[in-house]
Simulated assay, not measured.
Amino acid sequence: MDIQSLFNLNGRVAVVTGGSRGIGKMIVEGYLKAGAARVYISARKVDQIEETVAEFGSQVIGLPCDLSTVDGCLSLAEQIAAREEKVDILVNNA
């Protein structure tokens, strides 16, 4: 069994809510190492998002949102829909 082929995410687009720190950030790192094309992260704290984006580079796109509200959830969905035709992976970590 070829583990690299089994867990290959080449060209995939992921969204990780709460992806700027902790477990969410570790998931982002894993997806990037597995070949994800882009990983969108959301969080409420802009400075934490900016730090994570700076650490991982242009494949990580930060979208500040408060997902504790319906408006925040709708905003995140709209922002992603404006940028992507589809999302392959969603991790609701927030």
Rank of each mutant, 00 (worst) to 15 (best):
T52G: 03
T69Y: 02
T69R: 02
A54D: 13
A36G: 06
E50D: 15
E84H: 06
L90A: 06
G72S: 04
C73T: 10
S5Y: 09
V16C: 00
L76Q: 05
I27A: 12
I49L: 05
D71L: 07
E50R: 04
D2G: 11
I3K: 13
T17I: 01
N10M: 07
V70A: 13
V70W: 08
S5F: 06
R38I: 10
N93R: 00
R44M: 04
D2S: 14
M1E: 11
E51D: 11
Q59R: 15
G19H: 01
G22R: 01
I23H: 03
F56Q: 12
V46A: 14
A43K: 05
E29C: 11
I41K: 02
G72I: 00
C65A: 15
A36L: 08
V15W: 09
Q79N: 13
Q48W: 09
F7C: 06
E51R: 13
I3R: 13
E84N: 02
Q4C: 11
V70P: 11
A94G: 11
D71Q: 14
V39F: 04
E84K: 07
L76N: 04
G57N: 08
Y40A: 02
I23L: 15
G22S: 08
T17W: 00
L6P: 05
I61K: 01
G57I: 10
Q59V: 09
G30V: 04
A43G: 15
G24V: 10
A34M: 12
G11P: 05
Q48A: 14
S5K: 15
A36Q: 05
S68A: 10
L90S: 04
S68F: 03
V13P: 03
Q59M: 13
A37D: 06
L63E: 11
E85Y: 05
A82T: 04
L32P: 10
A14S: 06
A34Y: 04
Y31T: 05
L63G: 07
N92K: 03
V39K: 06
N8E: 11
E85D: 14
M26W: 09
N8M: 10
I23Y: 06
G18N: 03
G24P: 06
I61V: 12
V28F: 07
R44G: 08
G30L: 07
M26Q: 14
